[in-house]
Design a protein around this nucleic acid. Structure first.
Length: 808
RNA sequence: GCCGCUGUGGUGGAAUCGGCAGACACAAGGGACUUAAAAUCCCUGGCUGGAAACAGUGUGCGGGUUCAAGUCCCGCCAGCGGCACCA
């Protein structure tokens, strides 16, 4: 005999069947009807690594797949594309090791990823697939670079790079872990090379300001603002005894009277200027030498002792009181921020304090409120100025204003805004990246290729390894390197560095709008229709690099008239990582990696999708659990069993009508609010109610399937067909609810005495306060508690509770 | 040090504006079905006491506001992520 819910459904057959039907009917191909309302849902395209899909990938993909499927049912023209961010080091390293062309490796990896993604039933429009390593794609990456060069935003500069002394190779910052080479563990030092740079700093203020116009989750906005690191202060000129001037930047111009010495970076150019008068130049040179040998990691170690050398023969003059003060060089002052020189105010800066204590320098208190005998007093809120001449008695804020206007009047300084954000180092001495389309001509300097010569393809090379002196493998290709100047025709040499991995991903969302266009990166018509991306979800780890870089490129493209919106993404959300069982990060070495293929084989794609959405708060990390996933499979088995109890009838039954309206509301709202877990819980509750009722009408089942379809698209489509409903499920309109029907006729209310739960009453939903209180007092138990006592207060929140405050 | 997040049963996690803490699931225990197991179905469950009704207690810790606090305020503690000598 067949029980009600004891069927296990054949997910393998069903999932393959529907994936085939969707593909053959081009069900998820994006519509080109620009008169329809549009919705652009975007997930970050993956790097197709050799390991295949990780169980973390489906979490964001499923989430936005749910949104995309719901939007289609709501009548939108939906763009939900996918592609490959395929340039990058792991592929290149694999190619070096195994002597296989990275293009071939990429092709294999993409094929694997694609079949894995297909098996999950994600509704991507594969006709719009893009690949950053495709010359038809990177042609436009190169084109954008050339536009930036033409506008002066791309320039070449001598830069320190990370150099692995053992691999003899330039490393990206990400490859330097804990100060050593990620691959071989060798020592990493800084080496100066000429690098292409992009002037993202020119957009720093706009990248902050325009965050006001977009709907990003707060933590994303906060870390971008933090990363850009805007600070306001002043630049101040100090005369020197040499006869020139030294410019410093400070955020605390109010403490100028407390500046008792100065510090400049070991790389500061003034040292060259003063070399004739510095008496201890040997000592200075030795310090410079030592600093340059140090890795960035060593130099940045916070807790290390401050070191430095006092310059003999040159001193500075504090402009506000004419006092001569010593100048030091120390590596705690960075050449890359501000002016590479500071005024040191030990009384009110912890680093200066530490330095002053070590070198026994004067500490002059100029802001009262702390104890500068013990530690630096850095509070700007409460302090009052002392020992500061014209500033005495003012608050810190007042003093800042006053000293800045004094500096401006006397020509000794001016207000200044600084950013921590640095220009983007855009060169990599690597093979597997977009070639930089530039030529160096002895006469003309750096000249971009003619645009009609794009794409500049990656040439075939024999070895992908960088050369011994850290040049890209392209540097050994004389056929590639030797060319003629696009401007004057003289013999010239090509740039042999390639672009970083972040290049191709900085504009890919634009290409999806019109991926096969060979005239422009995308037609203006398509861009105007689809932009901005309505909802972009991606990892927090991309907040300060990819997300910021792509906003920067978009703003540039806006400035030159390629796109019509200031911002690329209207909304940005971020998912939490999926950890291994027990909350430990999944890793090969720990052997706790879950392969999505195994889960799909054992439970089916619908169960995997459902579980990844049910696992917890979408925005937080969640530990994988092999037993919890069974609950989701069980749920789908029970949904499958609904076919056994379906009855004729297209309307709602009296018993379930309210529950259905409530669930439609809950699921609809929860999807918008990233609360996929509670949306599923609501559907589970509804199923429990249906089970108790023992029957479901075909109309009710139809509604249930519509709600569940975005989460579990295969099984719902199959049941829909099995019970003889017309058309295909994904074509149906999203379910509507009636707010009035979400309210029950009667409600159970809690009755409290002095805030403690003492009883319950059932009242009509529309009962008034007086009536509720009357009914509560009539309750036997409550009456006992009130009897003989003084009723001080009666609180009634209709629909929730009653609270009697009694005394005595 | 700075920025952000988190702390709720055995576990994952729920809980609009302050309004019945623990929804929904997992695991566990008991029962039904079965020759048996699996699967499925039913029941129980924060903790303490009690056979039970019930009472007390309970959301990292200490205070406070309120008729009412997981939620708001003040002060701590612990953990996670990111940045880090940015003047």
């Amino acid at each position: 005999m067949k029980g009600l819910f004891d069927l296990h459904y054949d997910f393998k057959k069903i999932e393959e069947k529907w994936q085939r039907i969707w593909e053959e009917n081009r069900v998820f191909a994006t519509g080109n009807d620009y008169t329809k309302p549009k919705y652009y849902a975007l997930v970050e395209f993956p790097y197709p690594s050799g390991q295949g899909l990780h169980v973390g990938h489906p979490r964001p993909y499923t989430a936005l797949d749910i949104v995309a499927r719901k939007r289609r049912m709501q009548g939108y023209n939906v763009l939900f594309p996918m592609g490959w961010d395929a340039f990058g080091l792991p592929t290149e390293n694999y190619a070096i090791k195994n002597h296989i062309h990275p293009e071939k490796v990429t092709k294999q990896n993409v094929a694997r990823f694609k079949s894995q993604l297909r098996s999950l039933g994600l509704s991507f429009d594969w006709e719009r697939e893009v690949n950053t390593t495709d010359p038809d794609y990177y042609k436009w990456t190169q084109w954008i670079f050339i536009q930036m060069f033409k506008k002066g935003l791309a320039y070449k500069k001598e830069m320190a790079v990370n150099w692995c002394t053992s691999c003899k190779v330039v490393l990206a910052n990400e490859e330097v872990v804990g100060g050593v080479c990620e691959r071989c563990g060798g020592e990493v030092v800084r080496k100066v090379k000429s690098q292409w740079m992009l002037k993202i700093t020119e957009y720093a203020q706009r990248l902050i300001d325009d965050l006001a116009d977009v709907d990003y989750i707060d933590r994303v906005k906060a870390s971008q603002i933090n990363w850009i690191g805007r600070s306001t202060g002043a630049e101040i000129l100090f005369d020197t005894t040499f006869g020139d001037q030294l410019k410093i930047y400070t955020t605390r111009p109010d403490t100028l009277y407390g500046a008792t010495y100065m510090v400049i970076s070991p790389e500061h150019p003034a040292l060259q200027t003063w070399s004739g008068v510095i008496e201890n130049m040997n000592e200075v040179r030795a310090y410079q030498e030592a600093a340059s040998r140090k890795s960035d990691f060593e130099r940045a170690e916070v807790n290390k002792d401050k070191t430095g050398v006092m310059l003999q023969g040159v001193r500075a003059v504090n402009p506000v009181n004419g006092r001569e003060i010593p100048i030091f060089i120390s590596d705690y002052v960075l050449m890359t921020y501000g002016t590479g020189a500071i005024m040191a105010v030990p009384a009110h800066d912890t680093r200066d304090y530490e330095f002053a204590k070590k070198f026994d320098l004067a500490v002059v208190e100029v802001v009262k409120g702390g104890d500068v005998e013990k530690e630096a007093f850095t509070d700007c809120e409460t302090g009052v100025m002392v020992n500061s001449g014209m500033l005495d008695g003012l608050t810190v804020e007042e003093a800042k204003k006053k000293i800045i206007s004094w500096l401006q009047e006397t020509g000794k300084g001016e207000p200044k805004v600084n950013y921590k954000l640095r220009d983007w180092v855009f060169s990599r001495q690597r093979y597997w990246g977009e070639p930089i389309p530039m030529v160096y001509c002895d006469k003309c300097g750096w000249v971009p290729l003619d645009e009609h010569e794009l794409p500049l393809r990656l040439p075939e090379v024999e070895s992908y390894e960088p050369t011994d002196d850290g040049e890209s493998p392209l540097a050994t290709m004389t056929d590639f390197v030797n060319t003629t100047c696009p401007k004057c025709g003289a013999p010239a040499k090509r740039e042999t560095d390639t672009m970083p991995q972040w290049a191709g991903s900085s504009w890919y969302y634009l290409r999806y709008c019109d991926p096969h266009n060979d005239k422009t990166l995308a037609s203006r018509e398509a861009l105007d229709y689809w932009l901005p991306v309505d909802w972009y979800n991606g990892g927090m780890e991309h907040t300060t690099l990819h997300l910021l870089y792509s906003r920067f490129w978009h703003k540039f493209l806006y400035d030159i008239g390629v796109v019509g919106t200031k911002e690329p993404y209207a909304k940005r959300t971020s998912h939490g990582m999926i950890l291994g069982e027990g909350g430990i990060k999944m890793s090969k070495s720990k052997g706790n990696v879950v392969n999505p293929d195994d889960i799909v084989n054992e439970y089916g794609a619908d169960t995997l999708r459902l579980y990844e959405m049910f696992i917890g708060d979408f925005e937080k990390v969640a530990p994988w659990s092999n037993s919890s996933i069974k609950g989701c499979k069980r749920f789908l088995d029970r949904v499958w069993g609904l076919q056994d109890i379906v009855t004729d009838g297209e309307g709602y039954s009296d018993r379930l009508e309210g529950a259905f309206h409530k669930t439609i509301k809950k699921v609809s709202e929860d999807i918008e609010g990233l609360k996929f877990n509670t949306a599923i819980a609501a559907m589970m509750s509804l199923l429990n109610e249906i089970s108790d009722a023992g029957a479901i009408t075909r109309g009710e089942l139809r509604t249930f399937l519509i709600l569940l379809n975005p989460f579990a698209p295969h099984i719902t489509e199959e049941i829909y067909q099995n019970v003889g409903l017309s058309g295909m499920l994904h074509e149906q309109a999203w379910a509507e609810y009636d707010s009035e029907k979400c309210v029950d006729a009667t409600v159970e209310m809690a009755v409290q005495i002095n805030g403690k739960l003492r009883g319950r009453i059932v009242v009509a939903a529309d009962a008034g306060k007086d009536e509720i209180i009357r009914l509560a007092k009539e309750d036997e138990k409550i009456a006992q508690f009130i009897e003989g006592k003084q009723l001080v207060k009666e609180i009634c929140v209709p629909g929730k509770l009653v609270n009697f405050v009694v005394k005595g």
